[in-house]
């Protein structure tokens, strides 16, 4: 039996955000792509357990996260070594306007505990609700909320400290922040 085209399309459509999530988990583009690949293989072999009409991205995120977690336990040592290189590897990501600020941000993000980082990314960037994020992470909604909160608090502390020693407020950024939301 071959894959329903609508499921195939839904899986492919989820790939860009799945990659972004994977990179935020492991901090490495190549490894992230491997994670995405493993998740897709796994998803396809379990496609019968996907309920049509439910949230495909959330289903794939859950698979990918579980995959990452079990890999993480297997290669804890390797990951610990890699942790120091996390910020470094993120530097290979595409150049952006506001590069200096963004690289500060990347570094701060990489220093968050994993639970907090993934909660923040799921809710603050992937656009999942707290409930969806809780399902993906297999924990209570309140846990996600407090992780997101702690993540923000820590980031703001790190960025405030670095901001003070580094860069003053940038007028352009300020006007963007106080004005409309999208770049």
């Amino acid at each position: 039996m071959s894959l329903d085209p609508s499921l195939r399309d839904a899986m492919l459509a989820a790939v860009p955000s799945l990659r972004a999530f994977a990179i935020s988990l492991c901090g490495n583009v190549d490894r992230a792509d491997d994670l995405v690949q493993e998740a897709l293989v796994r998803a396809l072999s379990n496609i019968d357990s996907f309920e049509p009409g439910t949230n495909m991205p959330a289903w794939l995120f859950t698979i990918l996260r579980n995959q990452f977690r079990s890999d993480y336990r297997k290669r804890r040592r390797e990951v610990e070594d890699a942790n120091g290189k996390y910020a470094e590897s993120l530097k290979s990501l595409p150049e952006q306007p506001g590069q200096i600020e963004l690289s500060e941000f990347r570094r701060a993000l990489s220093e968050l505990p994993q639970d907090q980082r993934e909660a923040l990314v799921l809710v603050g960037a992937s656009g999942f609700s707290y409930e969806e994020a809780a399902n993906i992470c297999g924990c209570a909604v309140g846990t996600i909320k407090s992780r997101v909160n702690r993540a923000r608090t820590r980031l703001s502390e790190m960025l405030a400290i670095r901001g003070a020693e580094d860069i003053g407020p940038d007028e352009q950024t300020r006007s963007v922040l106080t004005g409309t939301d999208s770049p």
Partner: peptide
Amino acid sequence: QAKIGLQLRSLYNSIVDEGTPDRFVRLL
């Protein structure tokens, strides 16, 4: 808060904007 949100999304979307690499289409 706004700054964190903006930068987080900027980082995330820089990957999302790369779209779906061909290898995943071929894989499926």
